[in-house]
C-alpha cells in the first residue's frame, strides 16, 4: 500500500503541474495518437536520412545532373542512364568480377567458418585463447588489412610469397599476387576470407551452442553415429544461422570497396574492379551524378531483390 502511494505521489505531482491547456489536449488523444507522438520524431529522422536520399537518388537517376557542373541545365533524360548501364559490356564485366568475388568469399568463409566453429565448440586446453586469436582479423580496420596484405603479397619480401614459394618450390618473386590477371581475383578473395571468416564462425558458434544437449543424448541412445548426428542434427539445426551469415556476408561483399581499393585499385587493368569501385569512380571522380545514381539504384535493386528471395528461403528453412 505504501509502495503504491510512493510511486503515485510523484506522478500525481507531475500531473498537477501540467498546465490545464496541455492536459486537456493530451487527454483528448487516443493511445494510437500518443504512440505516434512518441515514434514520430524517430520516423521523421529515418525519413530524412534514409527515404529522402533514396527518393532523391531515384529522381537524379533520370537526369543528366553532375555535381561538379552547378551551372549546367538539368535535363530529364528518362531511362537513358539505365539503358546505357545495362547495355554496357564493361559494366557486365564488373558485375561478373563482383559475382566471382561474392561467390567464392561466401563459399570459403562458410566452409572454413563453420569448421572453425565446430572445432571451437569442443572444449579443449587454451580454448579461450585460440578463440580470441581467431577473432582478431575481423577486429582490424579494412584499411589496415589492405595495407599490410599489400606487403605480404610483395613478390620480393612478402611473407605470403615466401611461404607459397617454399612449399611449391618456386622462387617467391616468380608470381605476383596483385599484379597478375589470373591471381589478383584470388588475392582479394584470400584477404577477405582471412578477415571475415571469424565473423561467420561466431554466428555458426551461436547456432551450435543453441542445439540442446538432450537431442544428441537421444541420438546416442538410438546409437546414431557421429556422422549421422552431424548430418541429421547439427547441420539442419545450424542451417538458419549459416544462412544468416551467408546473407550478411553476401550483402557486405556485394558492396565491397575499401579493402579491394587499397589492395589493387581495381587492377591489374580492370580485373578486380568490383561494381562498387566503378560506382565510386563514376560518382566522385568523374562526377557523373545522374549516371552513378542510376547505377546505385540498379545495384540496390539487385541486392534488395536477391536478399528478399533469400530471406523467404531462410524463413522456410526456419519453419522446418
Amino acid at each position: 500500500m505504501n509502495a503504491r502511494s510512493d510511486s503515485e505521489g510523484p506522478a500525481r505531482n507531475v500531473a498537477n503541474m501540467t498546465p490545464d491547456r496541455v492536459a486537456r489536449t493530451v487527454r483528448g488523444l487516443s493511445d494510437k495518437a500518443i504512440a505516434w507522438l512518441f515514434i514520430g520524431p524517430t520516423m521523421l529522422l529515418l525519413l530524412a536520412i534514409n527515404l529522402f536520399p533514396l527518393i532523391w537518388t531515384i529522381q537524379l537517376s533520370f537526369t543528366n545532373y553532375r555535381a561538379n557542373r552547378p551551372n549546367a541545365p538539368i535535363l530529364n533524360i528518362g531511362l537513358d542512364h539505365y539503358r546505357a548501364i545495362l547495355t554496357d559490356p564493361d559494366i557486365w564485366l564488373r558485375m561478373q568480377a563482383t559475382a566471382h568475388f561474392v561467390f567464392w568469399t561466401i563459399a570459403l568463409q562458410t566452409i572454413i567458418g563453420f569448421a572453425l566453429a565446430y572445432l571451437v565448440d569442443r572444449k579443449f586446453r587454451g580454448h579461450g585463447f585460440w578463440t580470441t586469436l581467431i577473432l582478431v582479423p575481423m577486429m582490424l580496420s579494412p584499411a589496415v588489412v589492405g595495407n599490410f596484405w599489400t606487403f605480404l603479397y610483395q613478390p620480393q619480401i612478402g611473407l605470403f610469397n615466401y611461404i607459397v614459394g617454399f612449399f611449391a618450390n618456386v622462387p617467391p618473386g616468380s608470381f605476383k599476387m596483385l599484379g597478375d590477371v589470373t591471381l589478383s581475383p584470388w588475392a582479394i578473395i584470400i584477404v577477405d576470407t582471412w578477415m571475415w571468416t571469424p565473423y561467420v564462425m561466431l554466428i555458426c558458434l551461436a547456432g551450435l551452442r543453441s542445439i540442446p544437449d538432450y537431442i544428441y543424448e537421444a541420438a546416442e541412445v538410438d546409437r546414431a553415429s557421429n556422422w549421422r548426428q552431424f548430418i541429421s542434427i547439427t547441420l539442419p539445426m545450424c542451417m538458419p544461422f549459416i544462412m544468416l551469415a551467408v546473407l550478411f556476408r553476401g550483402i557486405e561483399n556485394f558492396k565491397m570497396f575499401d579493402m579491394v581499393n587499397l589492395l589493387t585499385s581495381g587492377g591489374p587493368g580492370s580485373t578486380t574492379e568490383l561494381a562498387s569501385i566503378t560506382l565510386k569512380r563514376a560518382a566522385f571522380e568523374a562526377w557523373r551524378t545522374g549516371y552513378s545514381s542510376a547505377f546505385a539504384i540498379i545495384l540496390f535493386v539487385a541486392v534488395f531483390g536477391l536478399a528478399n528471395i533469400y530471406v523467404k528461403t531462410l524463413n522456410k528453412v526456419k519453419a522446418r
Binding site: Q156, G173, L178, G179, S265, G267
Partner: peptide, 12 residues
Amino acid sequence: LFKCCTPPGYTN
C-alpha cells in the same frame, strides 16, 4: 620497358 626492366610486382 615495364616488362623488361621493373622490379617484380611493380604493377601499381
